[in-house]
């Protein structure tokens, strides 16, 4: 894929619409009022695709925003994780909510089941820090 230039390619919806697809494979211009009324557009069409988040991560990096880009990269991974699981993982990361074992299992699940290495890494890091700071469950 071509390197994106923030000055030329952003906003993507206006400047590079040909690069954008919904997770269901539609183009932005397919999401019309008529399509909504005809029942051809569902909530699943109004989500961002992982590829798009990776493009936006490129824009962030190209604008000198490393951490924002890393966040978008983790977000790209999470597009594959169901809403309910996302909420469960968030709750598991709260203080005194999980054992170290549980957090490591979540990391493993993120890695294996969802191919989400960036998120898995964040959870593993939390497990280490929580242990040192004594905020694990039990």
């Amino acid at each position: 894929m071509a390197e994106l230039d923030p000055a030329l390619d952003y906003p993507l919806a206006a400047r590079r619409p040909e690069l954008l697809r919904t997770p269901t494979g539609k183009r932005i211009e397919d999401i019309t009022m008529q399509a909504v009324l005809d029942g051809e557009v569902g909530p699943e069409d109004l989500r961002i695709a992982p590829e798009t988040l990776r493009l936006q991560a490129e824009i962030a990096d190209g604008s000198g925003r490393r951490q924002l880009g890393e966040n978008f990269a983790r977000a790209a991974e999470l597009t594959r994780v169901p809403d309910q699981t996302v909420l469960e993982i968030y709750n598991a990361l709260r203080p005194w909510a999980s054992t170290k074992q549980r957090l490591l299992e979540i990391a493993e699940q993120l890695d294996r089941e969802y191919t989400a290495p960036g998120c898995a890494e964040l959870v593993r890091e939390a497990a280490e820090v929580y242990e040192r700071r004594d905020i694990l469950a039990g």
Binding site: L46, R47, I48, L53, N71, F72, R74, A75, A76, E77, L78, T79, V81, V86, I89, Y90, L93, R94, P95, W96, C119, L122, V123, E125, A126, V129, Y130, I135
Partner: peptide, 23 residues
């Protein structure tokens, strides 16, 4: 105080990515 708010920087960072993952 962070713990009283029932969060940590890691839970909040994860939440941030969760929002971005839904655009």
């Amino acid at each position: 105080v962070f713990c009283d708010g029932d969060d940590t920087p890691w839970s909040k960072a994860f939440l941030a990515s969760a929002y971005a993952s839904r655009g």
